[in-house]
């Protein structure tokens, strides 16, 4: 019996060395370990073994089964890793990737959102107002004389009912102050319209961003600091900011802001208008509100506004402003960077 076990073991262990694939291994398993397999058959011989010898034979048989099983497992693992390696070796990692379609935000959205985030860092909230406005919000409340050329039908779009398309986002200043007592600290991005013939640098509809800060003791120093901070955040800390005295009906003193920055091509660029809110604007608001919440002897404020389209053009070196509204995908997709 022991001799049989030993010879079976020798035969099995010799044979497994010759097994080269999965199916021969399966056949081997059936041949030796299966229900009718050699080892099972040998185990059945236990019946004829003397009782006192049984533990010894049992043990030997067990060892036989274990050694074969363990070799089978080893072999199985070796075959599996061999198959895995072969499978991986067939993966051609040099083939091009399958494109994942990536959209893009409009360059104006990128710029506008950067601007909003900078002002939010300073604690400004976002405000909005309608595109369709009345003369009071667009002109009267902003201290624009009744015969001012801006009110002209040549320059401003009117509706048949006498209302108009706002010519600037400064209307939002008025909307906000009508509804909210000081302090007011807002930025308002939005569309504005002027009856300009469209060309490489003009659109009849453009995008502006307006800012307003009204509180006690707001001065030109705040105006200067805030706008300088904004433009340096937007264009880089090396950005030069220049304030030129100017005139707007709704601010006094008024300034135009010029910027010179590497990111804008290193040339002085007229970018924004700003100033201290004119007392006449506060008076118009007080009258409308029926209170003295914006008494110009108590509160003061600054306002600023700038166009985003030309800025986006200059930042991205876009040669023609009309490209911003043509929506050519070959253009838009250039702005998909993170």
């Amino acid at each position: 019996m022991e001799a049989e076990i030993a010879s079976l073991q020798a035969a099995a262990l010799a044979e497994i060395e010759t097994v080269g694939d999965r199916s021969s291994l399966d056949a081997f398993k059936v041949k030796y370990l299966g229900k009718q397999g050699e080892i099972t058959k040998l185990s059945e011989g236990m019946r004829h073994v003397a009782k006192e010898d049984r533990p010894r034979f049992g043990k030997a048989l067990n060892e036989l089964r274990q050694s074969v099983t363990s070799r089978v497992e080893e072999r199985e693992q070796a075959l599996a890793s061999q198959a895995d390696a072969e499978a991986l070796s067939r993966v051609d990692i040099s083939l091009p990737g399958i494109p994942a379609e990536q959209g893009a935000l409009h360059p104006l959205t990128h710029l506008l959102d950067r601007a909003v985030r900078i002002f939010r860092r300073l604690g400004f909230a976002v405000a909005e107002g309608p595109d369709i406005e009345d003369e009071w919000h667009c002109f009267d409340a902003l201290n624009t004389p009744p015969d001012h050329p801006a009110r002209n039908e040549q320059d401003t779009f009117y509706l048949p009912d006498g209302r108009l398309l706002r010519t600037h986002t400064s209307t939002v200043q008025i909307r906000v102050m009508e509804n909210q007592a000081p302090p007011v600290r807002i930025v308002a991005p939005g569309a504005a319209y002027r009856r300009d013939e469209v060309d490489a640098t003009h659109l009849a509809q453009f995008t502006q961003m307006e800012g307003l800060y009204v509180d006690r003791n707001v001065s030109v120093a705040d105006l200067k600091g805030t706008t300088e901070y904004f433009f340096r955040q937007l264009f880089g800390s090396e950005t030069e900011v220049r304030f030129r005295p100017h005139f707007f009906p709704f601010t006094e003193p008024s300034y135009e802001i010029d910027i010179r920055a590497k990111s804008l091509g290193g040339k002085w660029m007229e970018l924004a208008g700003c100033g201290m809110v004119d007392p006449a604007v506060f008076e118009a608001i007080c009258q409308k509100r029926g209170d003295r919440a914006f008494d110009p002897d108590v509160v003061s404020g600054f306002a600023f506004g700038f166009g985003l389209d030309r800025l986006a053009m200059n930042l991205a070196q876009v040669p023609d402003i009309r490209m911003l509204v043509e929506n050519d995908l070959r253009f838009l997709k250039q702005f998909s960077a993170l």
Binding site: R121, L122, G123, F124, A125, P183, V184, R185, I186, D215, S219, V220, A221, D222, K224, G225, T226, E228, Y229
Partner: peptide, 12 residues
């Protein structure tokens, strides 16, 4: 005129 920058949170 000096430049003064301050951060005052506005109500959202």
């Amino acid at each position: 005129i000096p430049s003064k920058v301050s951060a005052n949170p506005a109500e959202p």
